[in-house]
Amino acid sequence: MLKLDGIATFVAVAESGSISEAARRLHLSKSVVSERLADLEQVLGAQLLHRTTRKLSLTEDGAAFLEKSARILREVDEAQSEMAQRRGSLVGPLRISAPVTFGRMHLAPALMPFLRAHPGIELTLELDDRRVDVASEGYDGVVRHGALADSRLVAWTLARSRRQLVAAPDYLARHGMPESIADLRRHRGIFYTNRGVADWQFQQGAELLAVRAAHALRVNNGDVMRDAAEAGLGIALLPSFIAGAAIRSGALAVVDVGLPAVEEFIYVAHPEGRRPSAKLRAMADALKVAFGDPPYWEV
């Protein structure tokens, strides 16, 4: 007889590509995960995975079973959520990915009251600055800042986000205050690696102007970018949710080149074609209220 926990284990292994990672997600030992997979294959009478010392891959039967298994799990979760809603509560697992700096500074504090109000929700929040594949890695949703790069995702806006050029007063005293886009090209920049080389984009009417400067530092974390700017290494284009406090304290000064940076947003996204759970909708609504409009972190 097929067991739901065996199906869930198979889906976790297939999505993560690793028994170890699936065990971490499911909070199980690797031996339990392996045992459940073996039981499932025995009940089905089919091999679902090719196992080697280096990696796991789906067999033809495994690929066919995965599609239906994932749908079964979603429908069970939706049924559970619907029943909970009928009783006026939200229950069950919710797995979210978010960037490290925003997650630490703003998302986590906003989630605490939401989780207190809905103690039946089992939230897993994974902070990671890389662009995760929401569908294949088993996330219910992803909180991100910036442009939506994946067309397979449906996004709900949580808050507006304003980015500003900033630098330490010491750096500006040594190198001068840039007053135009042309001036910027002669300065040293601190860049966010996950956005590529053309991250400095400014709005001039209907046009977008991309600016490249010599790079002093390229890094994949906003906290480090702010610290590097405060240390006088160069100019950084940072969202106000990261740089706001440093601007208010005087540790960083705003660099005005006459054009605003392209407007961006904080959003939560879920896979296209997959009905978002009531838990995800409720979380998004709570975050909108917590962040405000305009958001509380704007200078």
Rank of each mutant, 00 (worst) to 15 (best):
Y192H: 12
T193C: 02
T193F: 07
T193D: 09
N194C: 05
R195F: 06
R195P: 00
G196M: 10
A198Y: 12
D199F: 04
Q203E: 15
Q203A: 15
G205H: 00
G205P: 08
E207H: 11
L208I: 14
L208W: 11
L209P: 03
L209H: 15
A210Q: 07
R212I: 07
R212H: 09
R212L: 14
R212K: 10
A213W: 11
A213K: 08
A214E: 15
A214Y: 08
H215W: 07
A216G: 12
A216D: 07
L217I: 01
L217V: 06
V219S: 01
V219M: 06
N220T: 05
N221H: 09
N221V: 04
N221E: 10
D223P: 12
V224S: 09
V224K: 11
M225T: 08
M225Q: 14
D227Q: 10
A229L: 01
A229C: 07
G234R: 06
G234D: 08
G234W: 05
P239Y: 03
A243S: 11
A243Q: 05
G244I: 11
A245D: 14
I247P: 02
G250Y: 03
A251T: 02
L252S: 01
L252H: 01
A253V: 05
V255H: 02
G258L: 04
G258A: 05
P260K: 06
P260D: 00
A261N: 06
E263Q: 11
E263H: 04
E264M: 02
F265V: 13
I266A: 03
A269M: 06
A269E: 10
A269W: 10
H270V: 02
P271L: 01
E272A: 14
G273R: 05
R275Y: 10
R275W: 01
R275T: 05
S277N: 11
S277V: 02
S277M: 03
